[in-house]
């Protein structure tokens, strides 16, 4: 089964604009950056969290602490996958107890990744609040999960695949929609 690229739906500039808007929404909703953590879900959520933090720093002069969350050991869909994902490290800036944590991921699809991330996060402590920021929401939820901050809503069919590419990992910034061929 191969993947054929159908269209690029966001370029570098569009991604930048979306992240900038989301960073404003986050700070506005939170009323500042105090007690706010941005926690990226490995792998592509991590550079996105770093960029949100940079955007916030640009207008607040303060960067919220950043965490990295590996959810491999919490996933419930591994046995249906053929790849062997490497178990990554989870790095937190401290005890998440009492903090407001914005989980950051690239794509929100079935909600299972977020469910695993919530489990992983609560195992580390008891945050005051957990919110969710995603660059793309493509629908087809299988769990009662919604995003608090969305870069772009993209209606898709189940056959399609959304690929978010970030410079830090993929050497360029863009979002493409792929079709299983």
């Amino acid at each position: 089964m191969g993947l054929a690229e159908k269209a690029v739906i966001m370029d570098e500039a569009a991604i930048g604009r979306a992240l900038r808007r989301m960073s404003h929404e986050i700070v506005e909703r939170h009323g500042g950056t105090g007690g706010l953590w941005l926690v990226g879900i490995r792998r592509r959520g991590v550079p996105l969290a770093q960029r949100l933090a940079r955007e916030i720093n640009a207008f607040e002069g303060l960067s919220p602490p950043i965490g990295e969350l590996d959810i491999t050991l919490y996933r419930d869909d591994l046995t249906t996958k053929h790849d062997r994902p490497r178990v990554g490290r989870t790095l937190m800036p401290g005890d998440p107890g009492g903090k407001t944590i914005v989980l950051v991921d690239d794509v929100l699809f079935t909600g299972r990744t977020v469910r695993a991330a919530l489990d992983a996060l609560v195992d580390l402590g008891r945050p005051a609040e957990i919110q969710l920021a995603v660059l793309i929401d493509r629908g087809h939820r299988e769990l009662p999960i919604r995003a608090d901050y969305v870069g772009k809503n993209v209606p898709t069919s189940r056959r399609e695949v959304i690929e978010v590419r970030v410079r830090e990992i993929d050497l360029r910034d863009e979002v493409a929609i792929m079709d299983q061929s």
């Binding site: 590996d70 491999t72 050991l73 919490y74 490497r86 490290r89």
Partner: peptide
């Protein structure tokens, strides 16, 4: 590969509740 995975496991063991549902 095993050692790298073990590093992640060591991080889990350092948590207050050293348990994951893997």
């Amino acid at each position: 590969d095993v050692l790298d995975t073990a590093e992640s496991m060591a991080e889990i063991l350092a948590r207050p509740i050293p348990r994951v549902p893997a």
